[in-house]
Amino acid sequence: MLALHEVQTEFRRAILTVDTDTFCALIAADGLAPEERLGVYRNNIVASLTAVLRETFPPVCRLVEEQFFAYAAHEFICRHPPECAVLAEYGGRFPDFLAASAPCRELVYLADVARLEGLMKVAANAAHADPIAAMTLGDVAAEDAQRLTLQLHPSFGFVASRWPIDRIWRANRPEAAAEATIDLAAGGVWLEVSRADANIVMRSLDCTTFAFRSAVQRGETLERATEAALVTDPAFDLCRALPALFLDGAVIAVNSAQPHAGREPRQ
């Protein structure tokens, strides 16, 4: 007799792979093939997770054939089942899965569109947090400000693409008018996604602002975020970029980074 942990491991294997023999041997037939009984659970799991992916990535659904989406969703579910019971948080790895999927390589922009949709879902489900005002920095010396990190509102996300994925996304929303023509050579985009009240906001940034804000979101110090921005614009001015970030309601906390080696922390 298998211990419960082994039973559950075999159940998982039988749901997510074609290797069902060990688990089916545990099931009483009672007039019906064990595989048929197992199939009820497998269908429930795959159908409901596919529905979650469809709801999360509607333009991706429109960009590929229905049959392919169902196939890709099934493959993704079997390789990357949810890690927790809050299904609103499921699907974060789907864009990378699409990017690595051979049939998707012809649709070069598909994974980036999926990344944009993923950020929108994160923004929609982000926890509530109150932005803070820039005056919070008022008592920080300029030299120390360089070592600060900012915590952005959890709804903020950033995605850059070589393709005009904002226009592709708009044209493929379920409610969009059909057949817009989009020039893929129109150039890349640097996008910021956030939530204002209950509304999801997508903004197109210049590449320098994108470099700065996405570095801040990754937890880089203001000094390093500034360095990232200076790569694309030697005239980048932190004294302008920082207040703009606060005015956009993006900052919810200011944290002191580790002091440089050899210096005492500020009391």
Partner: peptide
């Protein structure tokens, strides 16, 4: 839940 996977049904 088993092995870090949430199989979203009441198994």
């Amino acid at each position: 839940i088993t092995g870090d996977a949430y199989l979203n049904d009441l198994l």
